[in-house]
Write a protein that binds this DNA or RNA. Structure first.
Lengths: 326, 326
DNA sequence: CTGAAAGCGCTTACAG
DNA sequence: CTGAAAGCGCTTACAG
């Protein structure tokens, strides 16, 4: 009985068939806000089913002022850290009956800015910006609830959800010390700002060692760096990496160049993405509470009250540090 | 000079300030479809800037019939295979000036169905369904351009973009044979349908071996399976895995149980996600042209003409098969 | 090149 | 509990 025409069926069509008004049909479709007699409701539901009615949410959005869309800007959805965060946010948004519009910013401030403009133009009900370091001012002059995750550009009033980067590094350093390493190197990112900058600062203030390495946040670049040091025998014995991506690159290069993990080189990473449990050997990490961070970000823009502060990073000992777990 | 009120600035506000009509403002904002005198255009632009005008795309969508939104349903955005596909699709969609609405279906037919309904209700201009095996009928009775990627449920008229699963397995088997393996096992998924079912069928018809293993499409499950066989010394010497996720699980378990890759166990996987280059040791794969598949899917729903068939899977030799590359 | 006005498909006061 | 009608902010014939 479903209508097969290309012309979409409207509320008015349903109202006509059910012999009632569009107002009543709307009340039935939306379960409110006014009560409808049981008999009328049944007629409306029957008519809607017969005609194959599908609610036009853009019309509803224009009229009601709520698009039921949430914007999500992420540096790179292929990066497991952002992928994990993104999926948890999407889940929370979906549970709230809304849809998630995702844009990759490619770690570029300019693209992040354009994405925010575009999403605001689409009248999203809320905006979650998982920001890369270095991003500057975002679109202002609007009242769309906005939350930053991971990093908030300087001087912005919006809320921020971030892990305790300092504690994460401190735990990692302490753990390697407990394995007998008095020198712990750090593999940082290219710059000194943002969350990774905080991790670098934490390593510095821990006075754990003097060897500071740097690479991009890519497996390829970290692997190349380690290959370089492996062939020159200038590798440290213990290393904390700023991110899992870099740690995975370290493991790849180590495997290729015969550097035994953890015997020649003990490694701990500071993200703790789901990936980190499935490297060879398994990565010891200080695990950021990504799921809780996502829930908190979602509840801020969705307007839920009970948005508790996420738990701090905790150390998950696996094999790459020298522990004999698993 | 930007307006700071919460009340959004409308086209009418801009028209009033510029001393012209909303039609003309629309022509200026959209660069058409009618020409506007240079002087008028300048006045409009100035007024828009002064008022901090931001186009309301939901109003535009209702009127013009195009939401400038594309729906993307994916089993799991955290899975690197789908993440790679998804990011390429999002990039193509963004380049076309549209926004991507992403929903995770969790490999569940029911959730996939609900997601499609919801996206259709949001009046997306096109729908890309990266479908898991087992998914059945999707929302019908609409004229929204739809394309399936990876897998198309039976009996659907929509277009399909998929890699050549048969060739992928055949290449993998042939390569292991060239390394001297006359017995090549296969690690399949739980079922016999969908793309992985095709891969399994290709392995069977290659008559490469008799050992058929099965696990879920998760690292954890594949790792457990290999651990089981490792402790019983019932591991094959050469293995083709249906997916990278499973292969990574295999590598993890092998590392933990002292199974040397490739000497004790040679492995080739059939996806070729970006991840596969950064395992330890690096995975040999038959690489699916994910980026081309994404481009083709995007151009089908975007209505671009030149949507060429993606290149076939090609073998990328790395270390896990026994090659000494890299 | 420009303006006045209709209308996209809903939701929501308002009146009964 | 129900109906007639206004209006969300645009785009687009239509008339000038």
């Amino acid at each position: 009985m479903t209508k097969r025409t290309d012309q979409a069926v409207t509320l008015a069509d349903v109202a006509r068939r059910a012999g009632t008004s569009t107002a009543v049909v709307s009340y039935v479709i939306n379960n409110g806000p006014r009560p409808v007699a049981a008999a009328t409701r049944a007629r409306v539901l029957a008519a809607a089913a017969e005609l194959g009615y599908r609610r036009n949410r853009v019309a509803a959005a224009l009229r009601s002022g709520s698009s039921e869309l949430v914007g999500l800007i992420v540096p790179d959805t292929i990066n497991p850290y952002f992928a994990a965060l993104g999926r948890s946010i999407e889940n929370a948004v979906t549970r709230a009956g809304k849809l998630t519009v995702v844009v990759n910013s490619g770690y570029a401030a300019q693209r992040q800015h354009e994405a925010a403009e575009r999403l605001l133009s689409a009248k999203v009900d809320g905006l979650v910006v998982v920001s890369a370091a270095g991003a500057t001012d975002l679109a202002t002059g609007h009242s769309t609830p906005t939350v930053y995750v991971h990093h908030r550009p300087a001087g912005l009033p919006a809320e921020l959800v971030a892990a305790d980067n300092t504690a994460a590094v401190r735990h990692a350093v302490d753990h390697l010390r407990s394995h007998g390493h008095d020198q712990v190197a750090f593999l940082s990112g290219p710059g000194d700002d943002g969350p990774v900058g905080q991790r670098l600062a934490a390593w510095r203030s821990a006075a754990a060692g003097t060897t500071l390495l740097r690479s991009d946040f890519s497996r390829a670049d970290a692997a190349e760096l380690i290959a370089h040091h492996a062939t020159r025998a200038t590798l440290p014995r213990a290393l904390v990496t700023a991110t899992d991506e870099q740690a995975i690159g370290v493991l790849t290069a180590a495997s290729r160049h015969g550097v035994a993990i953890p015997d020649d080189l003990a490694v701990i990473s500071c993200d703790g993405t789901p990936e980190s449990a499935y490297t060879a050997p398994a990565l010891t990490v200080t695990e950021q509470p990504l799921h809780q961070m996502a829930l908190r970000a979602a509840s801020i823009i969705l307007g839920d009250s009970d948005a508790d502060i996420p738990a701090a990073a905790r150390l998950v000992p696996r094999r790459s540090c020298g522990c004999r777990t698993g």
